[in-house]
Amino acid sequence: MKAKMEKKETEEVPAEPENKKEESKAEIVFNRVEVHEENELNKIQKKKEKRKAVKGNITPLTGKNYKQLLSRLETRKNKLEELKEKDEKKAQELETKIKWTNALYKAEGVKIRDDEERLKEALKRKEKRKAQRKRQWEQRTVRVVEKMQQRQDKRQKNIQKKKKERIEKKKARARKKGRVLPEDLKKAGLK
């Protein structure tokens, strides 16, 4: 047995220097060492792997999309209820698994939003704020249109006023020269 073990060790020893030679084939550019792997992953594959690396295959309930969070919470509850009907033990295991993963995420600093009451309140607040902003925007557009109309009216009045003043100036010049205008005859009662 000892002899066989020694043979195996001697066979493994020469294999190590060959591995070192293969590793030394990496390209050296200036002061950087670039190692090229055969199975380089692109960004999409990395993201997929990151998603798979989620703790316990349970994605955390985080984010600000309260509708989605509520629906996910509902589906999770329904799944637990179905499991309770079929197998009480599996349902309990899943529940503890969810609690543990949530605890792990919380320890990392991730905010877990799994309180249904608070999610509903937050959704209501968000919808209310959205409606209020919509109303304010509509009021603003109405005010802008009104202001534009007022400016247009003022402009039209000013233009009309200038036209009348110009005409009055011409008439005054004509009177000064001694012309008799039809309006003057009407005032005098001759026509």
Rank of each mutant, 00 (worst) to 15 (best):
N102H: 07
K170G: 06
E22R: 13
E138S: 10
I98V: 04
E108F: 00
L185G: 05
T59S: 11
K86Y: 05
Q136F: 05
K67P: 00
Q139N: 15
A3M: 08
E81I: 15
T62H: 03
R125A: 12
G63V: 02
K111M: 08
L80H: 05
Q132D: 07
K171Y: 10
K169V: 07
E74R: 08
W137V: 01
P14S: 13
V110I: 14
E108A: 05
E12L: 15
I44Y: 10
L190T: 02
N78G: 13
K21D: 05
A103E: 06
M148P: 01
P14K: 15
A174Y: 08
Q68T: 09
K46S: 07
E95M: 10
E117A: 15
R129C: 01
P14I: 14
K187Q: 12
Q156E: 09
G109Q: 07
E116G: 04
K154R: 10
K20T: 03
K43E: 15
V13G: 00
K171V: 12
D87H: 05
K191H: 03
N102G: 03
G178Y: 04
K4H: 10
K154A: 13
K7F: 07
E23N: 11
K8H: 08
W100R: 11
D184S: 13
G109C: 13
A122Q: 06
V145Q: 11
T59Y: 05
S71V: 09
V35R: 12
A53L: 09
K77L: 09
K126E: 14
E108I: 04
L70C: 04
L70R: 03
R113V: 06
L41P: 05
A131Y: 01
R166C: 01
K164V: 10
K134N: 03
K99M: 04
K191L: 13
W137R: 14
E95K: 07
A174F: 13
E93D: 11
K55Q: 09
G63R: 05
N65F: 01
E34V: 15
Q92V: 09
N39M: 08
L181Y: 07
N65E: 06
V145A: 15
E81G: 02
K52G: 06
A131F: 00
T96N: 11
Q45I: 13
E138I: 13
K21L: 10
N42I: 07
G178R: 07
